[in-house]
Write a protein that binds this DNA or RNA. Structure first.
Length: 123
DNA sequence: GCACTGACGCGGG
DNA sequence: TCCCGCGCCAGTG
């Protein structure tokens, strides 16, 4: 049932720093499942990662915010990001964050930390 | 088991 | 750089 993946996603998502944005692929990578970016979006969309997940900090590889339908309020993701000091720009493809400036630059140490954590937790 | 879906990503033109 | 096609894979009916 790949429940392990969900537990991993929850841990990684909760580790995204305040005021930073992470990509689906980045989360999948840190979970040890680099090809499962779609599942990250799926899990978030269905609210399968529990309460308090900073879902607004997850954007796609180009920094585009998820479609309006993903949040109850059409601009909630934008407002939550801006409340954390993240600049959200308007583009023809939708709202976008500058990943160069506001993207989560996780380090190799971060990746190793998660790998050890998952092993220790047995997931 | 089968077909289809999707908050995705990448490589080629 | 911008599109577009294709690969990806857990869920769902």
């Amino acid at each position: 049932m790949m429940l392990d993946f969900y537990k991993r996603m929850e841990m990684v998502c909760r580790s995204i720093p305040w005021g930073k944005a992470a990509t689906y692929g980045q989360i999948a990578l840190l979970c040890g499942k680099p090809r499962n970016a779609r599942q990250v979006g799926y899990a978030l969309g269905r609210g399968r990662l529990g309460e308090g997940i900073p879902a607004h900090r997850i954007v796609n590889a180009r920094g585009i915010l998820s479609g309006a339908a993903a949040f109850d309020v059409y601009d909630l993701q934008k407002r939550l990001l801006e409340a954390e000091g993240v600049e959200v720009l308007e583009t023809k493809d939708g709202w976008q964050v500058n990943l160069k400036k506001d993207g989560w630059n996780h380090t190799l140490e971060d990746a190793l930390y998660f790998r050890e954590l998952f092993e220790k937790e047995g997931i």
